[in-house]
Design a protein around this nucleic acid. Structure first.
Length: 588
RNA sequence: GCUCCCGUGGUGAAAUGGAUAUCACAACAGUCUUCGGAACUGUUGUUCCAGGUUCGAGUCCUGGCGGGAGCACCA
């Protein structure tokens, strides 16, 4: 419809005798007026061209409208000039009827587009550190990443979901050390690796429910490092690991397996899947080759002390060191290699990093260096950042302050709360499954409802409230729709997609068809939040309809048409929620 | 000091340079509870400050103020 209106305006501009070069120079937009009384679509074309042509906007708008010939039985019934010179388009019942039909005939495809067809996007997200349980910050990252991938995919892109496993270095060594010295079942302290290797069963193992224990070992290891003598032992672990010492590798693999077990449980819960996981130990040494090459071609410069620097002034960025003076790697050294490896592996034309804002400069520098080295142009690389999550009234989370809210704990609390509410109503065996879906829905909604770059002060009370703007509000609207359909089926009323429903009856019919536009725009802007806003408005419109219209009425010829509208709403809501990563609970 | 992000009712948020700034929570007043009340209707109340660009600014520009993050051999 967007394109149709654009074409109509274009021919009206031509008919008005406006030169082609003037027309193509102007950029007018087609949008939905905020208020439905102003029409279904609106354009500012007259305002834009009136400025260029130095004409009165309202007069120009009227002239343009006079060139528009509407056919009877067409999708557009009325065109009006309003306000300072907007041209508003009103759509017909026929059009809306057709949309309901389109939705119901192929519900799986509705909301999808092919605007990104042929593009390959590699998206790195989540990437939790193995030494800690996931908390609120990781939750926002993961949920944002899942939604972004779904959005790109919904528009036809091929999406490669990637995660980076930072599985080596001092942090992991601390975790290993903490496990070694504090996880013996009898509580005795052992520092002897050989003893551990031959008596492994004397140490604790882990199950998916032992969520915090990893943090405990890591903190123990970190605390020990405050003593220089102990720190030396932990550093020695790193050195031995790099030398591939078999015992150290054995311990390393043991501890990592625990970490992966916990990570996987949480990520699976959040619906995060990955096509490829990059393990740091496999590529961390690769970076030096790229640095050497950069030095040879004169892109990089060796400083007096041996460190290697690149100048990024032409990119408007501060210079950065790409290799330490002792010849060892930095994060950026590894990332250069990884970016190239990723690109070659997937032949991706776009690479996205879903990472916090504190990495902004580092990533801009990485992108610039990749351009310097000919790995790719900066336009191929995007940093999809997001705001911080703090706990309301407590400020920034800090494990030292003891105010860290873990992802799983939050989800559990939401699930328990949901089960409590549900107990009052029903006692199905699927109760905990449904409660989990609703808990996830509530959490995802909280994380996506704000603009991506905005900080969130997470309010547990608000998240636990299922009234108004919330995931459960959307899920519930969907459930109510299904419930109507169930009743309709029982009474033998099928959806009537051929009869036109008078659209004055509800605003609902004038909104449901917009989902594909929203999903397209949201993908372009990396803004899942726009889908949230749309669905919330749609659910409110449905609830209003529900409250004021008896869908299934005896001896009512329009029941079938209303059922079709409700069914279409249910499909649209389900498609929209799916993109966000929210599951519909169905009829509970 | 420099760079980036953010600033919208009491609270949390929305708004590709457009029309009367839109929702939700809270508060107050109601509906109905015959398709599921996790609902619906109504009332009160908002763009950090000062300039500028524009027919039109929450949005763009300049300068402040407030909050957060980053700034070369840390991860």
């Amino acid at each position: 419809m967007n394109d149709t209106i654009k074409a109509i305006i274009h021919s009206a501009l031509v008919a008005e005798g406006i030169p082609a070069e003037v027309i193509s120079a102007g950029t007018f937009v087609i949008e939905h007026p905020a208020d439905l009384s102003k029409g279904d679509y609106s354009t500012n074309a007259a305002l834009v061209y009136a400025k260029v042509l130095k004409r009165n906007p309202v007069e120009l708008a009227n002239a343009l409208v006079s060139h528009i010939k509407l056919e009877t039985d067409a999708d557009i019934t009325r065109v009006e000039v309003a306000g300072p010179g907007f041209i508003n388009f009103f759509l017909s019942s026929l059009f809306f009827g057709k949309q309901v039909k389109v939705i119901l005939e192929n519900p799986e495809r509705f909301g999808h587009s092919s605007t990104m067809k042929g593009q390959v996007w590699a998206v790195e997200y989540a990437s939790p550190n193995p030494n800690k349980a996931m908390h609120l910050g990781h939750l926002r990252n993961t949920i944002t990443g899942v939604a972004l991938c779904n959005l790109l995919e919904a528009n036809g892109a091929t999406v490669i979901r990637e995660m980076v496993d930072n599985n080596r270095g001092i942090s992991i060594a601390k975790l290993m050390w903490g496990y070694l010295v504090s996880a013996k079942k009898d509580g005795n302290r052992v520092e002897d690796l050989a003893y551990w290797q031959s008596h492994k069963d004397e140490w604790h193992t882990i199950t998916a429910s032992d969520r915090r224990v990893l943090d405990v070992w890591y903190v123990t290891g970190s605390e020990e490092c405050k003593d220089p003598a102990q720190e030396a032992k932990v550093r020695e672990l790193v050195v031995k690991w790099e030398a591939k010492d078999p015992v150290v590798w054995d311990l390393w693999k043991t501890v990592l397996d625990f970490a992966y077990l916990l990570q996987k449980a949480t990520l699976t819960r959040l619906g995060a899947t990955f096509d490829y996981v990059w393990h740091e130990h496999e590529h961390y040494e690769e970076g030096k080759r790229y640095v050497d090459a950069g030095v040879k071609t004169g892109v990089f410069r060796v400083l007096e002390d041996g460190a290697i620097l690149t100048t990024l002034e032409s990119f408007g960025l501060s210079d950065t060191i790409v290799q330490k003076n002792d010849g060892t790697s930095l994060y950026i050294t590894q990332d250069i290699a990884l970016t190239d490896l990723k690109k070659k592996k997937h032949n991706a034309d776009h690479q996205v990093w879903v990472i916090g804002p504190e990495q902004s400069l580092a990533l801009q520098q990485l992108f610039a260096v990749c351009e310097q080295l000919g790995i790719g142009m900066r336009e191929e690389f995007s940093h999809v950042s997001y705001g911080y999550v703090t706990i309301k009234g407590q400020g920034k989370m800090s494990s030292r302050e003891g105010n860290v809210l873990y992802a799983d704990d939050l989800l559990d609390e939401l699930r328990i709360k949901t089960e409590g509410i549900m107990a009052e109503r029903l006692s199905g065996q699927d109760k905990s499954v449904i409660a989990e879906k609703i808990a996830l829905g509530a959490a995802i909604y909280e994380m996506l409802k704000a603009g991506r770059t905005k900080d969130i002060a997470f309010d547990m009370e608000s998240a636990l409230s299922f009234e108004g703007d919330s995931g459960p509000y959307l899920q519930y609207a969907h459930t109510r729709a299904l419930s109507i359909m169930r009743k309709a089926k029982e009474q033998g009323i099928g959806p009537d997609v051929d009869g036109a429903l008078p659209h004055e009856e509800s605003e609902l019919i004038r909104k449901i068809y917009r989902l594909p536009e929203v999903i397209e725009e949201a993908a372009k802007l990396y803004a899942p939040q726009q889908v949230v806003t749309f669905l919330t408005d749609l659910a409110a419109t449905f609830n209003n309809y529900y409250a004021h219209t008896q869908v299934i009425a005896d001896n009512d010829a329009t029941s079938g048409r209303r059922v079709a509208l409700v069914a279409a709403f249910a499909e649209v809501m389900e498609s929209g929620l799916k993109v966000l990563g929210i599951k519909t609970p169905g009829v509970m």
